[in-house]
């Protein structure tokens, strides 16, 4: 009770004593936890390198500041590969994720106790493992190259698209579905007339959004050998060719800006 009576004067406080105490305690625990973590990290850190960082950054900036523009021609092809990887990976991912989402949504799943948990399990597994880790595994199995990258992107996209899509399916208006069912439609017709039109905007939006993210992800898959611009980035970093690195950074930045613009346009057009 924040209002108390003291000598026939009403006193107001924002919180009562117990609440205030709990909040202080919460802060205390939080700060203590932070200190412990900080202590742990700082024990693993060679501070000389950290204090040296401004020097390093300055040095790096100097080397990056004069990019060899001729290198640009040599990364056009890898950049094309990167975009391909993202696009094809997204396509495969979306194609697999769509039926999976219908299996995972409680209102469209044909079997609540077998297929639904299975579909949810696939979605969660795909989501928890980053595409770079998928690429790491796939490069071991398929060998280095674009294929590993495409499948890695696809595997990660399944979880992302699947989750958002099944949530969208679960939020549809059941009345519309019921109305279609009442016309005597078969289950597949109910899906195509009652459910699909309702989630179509979400479906398109999610797919384009994931494509946009995948462009970013595809730029790094080359670091573990899965093709694309990351291969060049890795080589340039390892040979300390910071000038080339800055050319690659600029190329990535441009591509990302363009893809973000395209994705925003498409989503805007749909909604």
């Amino acid at each position: 009770m924040p209002v108390t009576q003291i000598d026939d004067r009403k006193v107001w406080q924002r919180r009562d004593r117990a609440q205030q105490l709990r909040i202080w305690l919460g802060w205390l625990v939080g700060v203590a936890l932070f200190m412990v973590c900080w202590e742990y990290i700082s024990r693993q850190t060679i501070w000389i390198f950290v204090w040296d960082a401004p020097q390093q950054a300055f040095d790096m900036a100097r080397r990056m500041s004069n990019p060899p523009w001729g290198y640009f021609d040599r990364i056009l092809w890898p950049m094309w590969d990167t975009i391909n990887m993202a696009t094809l990976g997204t396509l495969i991912g979306v194609v697999i994720a769509t039926p999976l989402a219908f299996l995972a949504a409680w209102n469209t799943t044909p079997s609540r106790f077998v297929l639904r948990p299975l579909a949810l399990g696939i979605i969660v597994t795909s989501r928890s493992i980053n595409s770079l880790i998928w690429a790491l595994l796939l490069v071991l199995i398929l060998g280095p190259g674009l294929m590993a990258g495409i499948i890695a992107i696809a595997l990660r996209s399944i979880g992302f698209v699947g989750k958002l899509l099944y949530e969208a399916i679960e939020e549809i208006d059941e009345n519309q579905v019921e109305a279609i069912r009442a016309t005597g439609a078969a289950p597949t017709q109910v899906l195509s007339y009652g459910v699909w039109p309702q989630i179509l905007p979400a479906f398109a939006g999610i797919s384009v959004y994931r494509w946009d993210i995948n462009i970013r992800e595809a730029t790094i898959l080359g670091l573990v050998g899965a093709g694309g611009i990351g291969v060049q980035l890795s080589a340039s970093v390892n040979s300390l060719a910071w000038g080339q690195v800055s050319v690659i950074f600029i190329a990535i930045l441009l591509t990302v800006v363009v893809s973000e613009w395209v994705s925003a346009k498409v989503r805007h057009a749909i909604i």
Binding site: I41, S42, Q44, T45, I46, V50, Q56, M60
Partner: peptide, 8 residues
């Protein structure tokens, strides 16, 4: 490259 290897 700036801070050295490690969690920092």
């Amino acid at each position: 490259a700036m801070f050295g290897f490690g969690p920092f």
